[in-house]
């Protein structure tokens, strides 16, 4: 029998922690194409994802979950549409310590919703850092409706990422239930 695959997309601004999040739970070494950062404005880290991150979790004998991380920079947004095709849902990851990226996060969120009206959650990464914005402030800054799940996260911690994935999957189930009713 042919193995079935499902996909969850992890998106968000540059340096939000998408690669880290996927790396925390993937059973394979995350496949990514990293390139030296050349733009002055993006010199927060030395390298960044220019194609996509690709993680994998085997669910059972005939089902595999793929986690795709989108490249963070705007100039790669042509990839977003390709990545969003057929996804179960998506995660918008925000760096809680960099309010200058919130507007971009909002733009990415709206773009993905347009590409695929699938369930999504918003995740505030780096909540373990002292200069992280609070969830309440991030919700207001991103203009998120109270119905949208906004979760705290530390992407490098497996348990934290696990909670995030489960919350997205529960949101997907809720969506299926509401569509049924």
């Amino acid at each position: 029998m042919q193995t079935q695959t499902v996909k969850i997309v992890v998106t968000g601004p540059f340096n939000a922690g998408k690669t880290e999040l996927i790396r925390s739970v993937s059973e394979i070494e995350v496949v990514n194409t990293e390139k030296k950062v050349t733009s002055e404005s993006e010199k927060v880290k030395n390298s960044t994802t220019v194609a996509m991150d690709f993680g994998r979790i085997t669910v059972d004998n005939d089902l595999v979950l793929f986690l795709f991380g989108t490249p963070g920079q705007k100039r790669f947004d042509f990839m977003w549409e390709i990545l969003s095709e057929g996804m179960l849902g998506f995660i918008v990851l925000v760096d809680s310590t960099r309010p200058e990226t919130f507007r971009e996060a909002r733009g990415i969120l709206e773009t993905f919703r347009a590409y695929a009206p699938t369930p999504y959650i918003v995740v505030a990464n780096k909540q373990d850092l002292t200069d992280a914005w609070s969830l309440e402030d991030i919700r207001v800054a991103l203009r998120l409706d109270s119905a949208i799940k906004l979760l705290p996260c530390t992407a490098k911690k497996k348990s934290s990422v696990k909670t995030v994935l489960l919350e997205l999957l529960y949101a997907i189930l809720e969506e299926l239930d509401s569509a049924k009713s």
């Binding site: 499902v6 669910v59 089902l63 979950l65 999957l169 299926l176």
Partner: peptide, 9 residues
């Protein structure tokens, strides 16, 4: 399918 993924996660 989603429930299977949840169980695995």
């Amino acid at each position: 399918l989603v429930n299977r993924v949840i169980d695995r996660i």
